[in-house]
């Protein structure tokens, strides 16, 4: 199916400077930005138990990001550690998918976004836990366990919101309709993916992943009595640093203290 989209993925013929580094940034930035978004809920959740659950997911994701960015820094071999990468890169140098940087919105937006990401992440980690790169496979195995638990939480909430009250159903449907356009990017395959497949033997079949993901999503959407969006238009660009305006503000907040004291230890 050809989707109308602004072509920002790297044409497959373009050589990529350090593909494994780029690839790890994508994985790490996804989780750092999403973890940061979830942490914005701390103290503002709909009920105490949910404050704890949201913090739990935030913590896990930032932990995964930390490991991934640390590995990225090692691969880059220019002396940047996870903190240097997290706190001293501009938005255009970030490689997260757009899905994770969009504002939290209401609880429905947060949970729907979380579910769509968790379903993708569980499938991805499952595949990557078997990849040839030992460092990444180890991170994948550990992260898979935690993400499975997140998926359980987010999917159960999507069902409860969809099949709850009229208001929650409406909000859940609106949430699904509004974030759907960011899901295509998760399954894009570009020159970076080709390069890591060739050089680091990390070969993910994105179409197969997308298909499995769609099956999982359809199942939960059905149980939630929601309707799967049909608009094929997808927004993309995060993987190449073409972000929404939200990311700049997110990073300004995240980085301000570190950048105000360059070289300081914390």
């Amino acid at each position: 199916m050809t989707e109308p989209s602004f072509q920002v993925a790297a044409p497959r013929s373009t050589p990529v400077a350090n593909p494994l580094f780029e690839y790890l940034l994508r994985l790490g930035d996804d989780r750092l930005v999403l973890g940061h978004r979830l942490s914005e809920w701390c103290g503002h959740g709909p009920i105490l138990e949910e404050d704890i659950a949201l913090s739990n997911m935030a913590l896990d994701l930032i932990g995964h990001a930390s490991s991934l960015l640390a590995l990225a820094g090692e691969i880059e071999a220019q002396g940047r550690d996870a903190d240097a990468l997290a706190y001293f890169r501009e938005a255009v140098a970030y490689r997260n998918a757009l899905l994770v940087e969009i504002p939290n919105g209401d609880f429905a937006v947060t949970m729907v976004r979380q579910f769509l990401f968790d379903a993708y992440s569980v499938l991805l980690w499952d595949a990557l836990s078997r990849c040839e790169h030992e460092g990444l496979a180890a991170i994948a195995t550990k992260s898979l366990k935690e993400d499975k638990y997140h998926l359980r939480h987010s999917s159960e909430w999507v069902v409860r919101l969809g099949d709850g009250t009229e208001e929650s159903h409406e909000r859940a449907q609106q949430a699904l309709d509004s974030v759907w356009r960011y899901t295509g990017e998760l399954f894009d395959h570009d020159a970076v993916d080709d390069a890591v497949a060739a050089e680091a033997f990390i070969a993910i079949d994105h179409d197969a992943l997308h298909s499995l993901w769609l099956t999982m999503v359809k199942d939960v959407v059905h149980r939630a009595t929601l309707t799967l969006p049909t608009d094929p238009a997808m927004r993309r660009g995060g993987r190449r640093g073409f972000h929404t305006e939200s990311l700049g503000h997110l990073l300004a907040t995240m980085q301000i203290v570190a950048r105000s004291h360059p070289g300081a230890s914390w």
């Binding site: 009920i47 105490l48 138990e49 704890i52 659950a53 739990n56 159960e156």
Partner: peptide, 19 residues
Amino acid sequence: VHAPDGELALQNARDVYAR
């Protein structure tokens, strides 16, 4: 813990008492 049903009770219990 407080929970609306068994599934969320289990999850909440895990987050509060077993994390």
